[in-house]
Amino acid sequence: MLFAYDTEVALRTAVNLVNTVDSEGVEGLRTTGDLDRFLEQEEFSGSRTHDDDELASVRTLRSRLRTLWDASEDDAVALVNGLLRESQALPQLVKHDHWDWHLHATTPEAPLAERMGTEAAMAFVDVIRSKELDRLRICAAEDCDAVLIDLSKNRSKRYCDTGNCANRAHVRAYRERKAAS
């Protein structure tokens, strides 16, 4: 295992949040209902206001997190530290629902975007401390700019999970090889 389970979950949630805007800029979090479905899929718990301000704050967080995929180590540290400072993070071990012991650094009553940002920041702390920022990648498909985190042991993940990018690339390469022979 590269990172602790809750760190990997938080990293995947950050990836999935960033990828709620597709390559053409199509918004995947248009309504509070979209946000509800996203949070349910990600099994994100805690209080909610279910209003447009909450949705807007999550979209703002998404933009901030997206910058990590192009950031230098120093810039990534500045963003992560900023998120932790803003939430006045106080890491604590918690157990809830079907989750065993894991870290939370805010209260369940903190605003949603603050909790999401803090969870992501705590996960990125491990990525930065482990000198693993190179695991943050942009999809290798020519027509996709979705982000991904490569958690494979051999560092071989090149394509996102948002569509069929890997399959399309493999089919294209196969057809090119067939055409050449």
Results as ranks from 00 to 15, higher is better:
55 L>C: 05
87 S>R: 03
125 V>Q: 09
91 P>T: 04
147 V>L: 01
109 E>A: 15
117 G>N: 04
52 D>L: 13
65 L>P: 03
131 K>H: 14
93 L>H: 07
103 L>V: 15
46 G>A: 05
156 S>D: 12
75 D>K: 05
125 V>W: 06
108 P>F: 02
65 L>R: 03
55 L>N: 00
94 V>E: 04
149 I>R: 05
69 W>A: 05
142 E>W: 14
132 E>P: 07
120 A>I: 00
148 L>F: 13
84 L>K: 00
62 R>P: 01
136 L>G: 03
151 L>P: 04
77 V>N: 06
62 R>V: 01
103 L>D: 08
67 T>P: 08
165 C>I: 09
151 L>Y: 03
156 S>T: 15
107 T>M: 07
132 E>D: 15
82 G>P: 08
104 H>F: 00
132 E>I: 08
134 D>F: 13
129 R>C: 11
146 A>L: 11
150 D>R: 06
129 R>S: 11
64 R>V: 05
145 D>H: 13
141 A>F: 15
100 D>A: 10
91 P>I: 03
89 A>N: 09
148 L>K: 13
104 H>M: 00
147 V>K: 04
155 R>A: 08
147 V>H: 03
56 A>Q: 12
53 D>F: 14
149 I>P: 05
90 L>R: 14
157 K>T: 15
49 T>S: 14
104 H>Q: 09
60 T>L: 14
73 E>A: 15
114 E>A: 11
70 D>W: 06
45 S>C: 10
79 L>K: 03
137 R>N: 05
127 V>C: 08
83 L>I: 07
145 D>G: 10
85 R>Q: 09
126 D>Y: 11
135 R>C: 06
153 K>Q: 09
41 Q>D: 15
108 P>E: 02
70 D>G: 15
56 A>D: 13
77 V>A: 08
157 K>M: 10
162 T>W: 06
74 D>W: 05
161 D>A: 14
82 G>E: 07
121 A>W: 00
141 A>H: 12
91 P>G: 04
134 D>Y: 13
68 L>D: 01
163 G>V: 04
162 T>I: 10
147 V>T: 04
121 A>K: 00
85 R>M: 09
153 K>G: 05
147 V>Y: 01
52 D>A: 12
162 T>D: 14
74 D>K: 11
48 R>G: 03
134 D>L: 13
59 R>A: 08
117 G>Y: 01
112 L>V: 04
107 T>W: 02
55 L>W: 07
109 E>K: 07
131 K>M: 12
134 D>M: 12
118 T>D: 02
54 E>K: 06
63 S>H: 15
52 D>R: 10
159 Y>C: 11
106 T>G: 01
102 H>Y: 03
89 A>C: 12
160 C>T: 08
106 T>R: 00
139 C>R: 08
162 T>Q: 15
98 H>K: 12
94 V>W: 02
133 L>G: 00
123 A>M: 05
152 S>T: 15
71 A>T: 04
63 S>N: 15
108 P>A: 07
